[in-house]
Computed example of a mutant assay.
Amino acid sequence: MATSSRASAAHDLDPRAEAILKFWVGDSFLKAGLGAFPQDKTKLWFMSGPEVDEEIRAKFGGDLRKAAAGEMDSWRGYNGLAAVILQDQLARNFHRGTPEMYAYDERALALAEILQEDGSLAGTPIIHRFWLALPMMHCESLAGHELGIRFSKTLQKEAEALGPPPDEGLMDIINAEAKHAESHKACIEQWGRYPHRNKLLGRPNTPEEEQGFKDNAIPAW
């Protein structure tokens, strides 16, 4: 990875963005190689529970309030990545089991789309840019899913072309996300939204969704 690319992404790194990124992708994220994979973070990403939720509430509540007020909408590079992770990932821990889990999704999606296009994260580790694909998978827009799938395929090709091979776990997570992106898109194509969110969001089920729940045809991610 070119030093200039990393320096550009980290230009004027906000202290709060740095705190978010160190928490999520590791203290040495600025020194990580293109194919790096922080093994010690997988439990945080995929198996966290109430204790982690409380830690996130204590550490990042103020940041979420700033994000909700639009104060991070103009962030780019690593600052922007931190804002995406905060609003797409940490918000789900912070507000677990409440409608507010999804309250930041539109901002996260809009910013992730910008960061995918503007090149401000060019040359940064693949696992860092991986988090830009998740808002597309979480959204209820078919166009968003299509963009996310294209981006996921780009990351796959980049990871496959690495030499020497990427750190253990990188290809697994990239390939798994690409597979999940396709299944999530299929849900949106069939139902137009994620019906499993209806109850939490106070949305009535359509007759078709009611039948889908009875038939166990609707996934509950």
Rank of each mutant, 00 (worst) to 15 (best):
L86Q: 03
I127K: 04
E117S: 14
P164L: 04
P165N: 08
Y102A: 08
E146H: 08
E140H: 07
L121N: 03
Q87T: 15
E100P: 01
I114R: 15
D118N: 12
I174K: 01
L109K: 07
A122T: 14
Y104S: 13
M136C: 15
L86K: 01
Q156P: 02
L134A: 12
G148Y: 08
E158W: 02
H138A: 10
T124A: 08
S120D: 10
I85E: 01
A112Y: 01
I126F: 01
K157N: 12
D118M: 09
A110P: 09
M171E: 10
A133Y: 07
A122V: 10
A143P: 00
T154H: 04
I173Y: 13
L90A: 11
Y102T: 06
A159W: 00
Y104I: 02
E146I: 09
L121Y: 05
P166R: 05
E113R: 15
G169S: 04
I149L: 15
H95T: 02
P99E: 06
R107P: 00
E106D: 14
A112E: 02
R92L: 13
E168Q: 13
A91K: 02
C139N: 14
Q156A: 04
P164N: 06
E160M: 00
I149K: 08
A159C: 08
I149G: 05
I126L: 14
E160G: 00
Q116P: 03
G97E: 08
N93E: 06
Q89L: 02
M101N: 07
D172N: 12
I114P: 00
T154K: 13
S120R: 09
I174A: 01
A108R: 05
M137A: 14
Y102I: 04
L134C: 13
I149C: 08
I174C: 01
K157L: 13
H128S: 11
S120A: 12
I126Y: 02
